[in-house]
Design a binder for these strands. Structure first.
Lengths: 188, 188
DNA sequence: AACCTAACCGGAGAAGTCTCCGTTTACAAG
DNA sequence: CTTGTAAACGGAGACTTCTCCGGTTAGGTT
């Protein structure tokens, strides 16, 4: 029952774009590690206060930088072609595996950003979407298990921290996950 | 082949204790969230520089605050009585389960500290010990699997973030882990 | 006891995140 | 075009984490 939010004012929209642009540019130039919001504000030609009003805090900005690709990713498993998306052609096991593989690639693709985002320590809305999706598949795939918890278990190791900092390559992670899913699936 | 470190000077030792004391006290008073090292230094009656030389950085201090209990915990699974510790009386499956349960309790016990520590984002030496221990047990329990990766998978969901922030109680987590281990174990 | 020096001390200050609030601006209504 | 006002602006400054370095001290040596 929320009333609909008032439309964004033109100066606000303009500044939001300037900020995102500046952030992307600085990211490409200096790397993610030393992306200071002060600097972003300066490069965008706005005050720091503006950055914070637009994006709430550091992780809000990082989330915005991740958003476009994330939206494409979510579309691909929510409404794209099988085996990632729904549609008769894929079993639950195939979809789980495809989803986990895609998520590994997804995180690797923007690993520096995910790394910073994880440091901020709050659960993000992308996480919720991934979790819900996976839980639904797991409820079908592993009957009798606590699907919500199991989804958290499978998502937990897929963080940039583990993927970047512990020396796993993506092939090994994918193989490990495949093996895990195979063992979890009841054999008939 | 490191030469042995020179013994700690008496003023350094005294200050280290004062800092730990002050940190523990402030932790009890104001909670972990707002534990600033500046304040710790002031409460301990030393300069900030001293805190940083002693402990390296924020997470170094947090690690020191965790250290005593962690040492007891490690003793209990490395050389304590079964099923947690070694000794003929427990199967690998029992030891894995016992270890995971104990680790859930261990983290819950100092969850606020672990939460802050995880934010710092580096893998800690306790993690390495837990990981090695678990990997050895899993190599026996789940032959043919990538035991090191599997150990990371099982440890990943056991973080304060998940345990505190997602509304699981310890009973549910333990039950979920038990079920998971059961499903992973090859049936004869 | 006086001396030497490696190790330690402490606080000023750099750099970053985020807040507060007085000023400015977009835009809808008259 | 004027006016009213809700929203947006921006930068000073509070608060952190962490570094740097000139001054101090513990404790072995002579």
């Amino acid at each position: 029952m929320l009333g609909q939010a008032p439309p964004e004012r033109s100066d606000a929209a303009r500044n939001r774009l300037k900020i995102i642009d500046a952030a992307v540019r600085l990211l490409a130039e200096h790397g993610a590690e030393q992306l200071s919001l002060d600097e972003v504000a300066r490069a965008a030609g706005v005050g720091v206060g503006t950055v914070y009003r637009r994006f709430g805090d550091r992780s809000g900005l990082l989330l915005a930088l991740i958003d476009e690709r994330e939206r494409r990713f979510q579309e691909s498993f929510l409404s794209g072609p099988p085996p990632l998306g729904p549609g008769g052609g894929a079993s639950a096991a195939e979809r789980v595996t495809a989803f986990l593989h895609a998520l590994v690639d997804r995180i690797t693709e923007q690993e520096k950003l995910f790394l910073l985002l994880e440091r901020s320590g709050r659960y993000t809305s992308p996480y919720s979407v991934h979790h819900t999706h996976l839980a639904v598949l797991l409820a079908e795939l592993v009957p009798g298990a606590d699907a919500h918890f199991l989804a958290d278990v499978l998502l937990a190791p897929l963080n940039a921290n583990l993927l970047c900092l512990r020396g796993y390559d993506t092939a090994r992670v994918k193989a490990g996950l495949d093996d895990l899913v195979r063992r979890l699936t009841p054999r008939g």
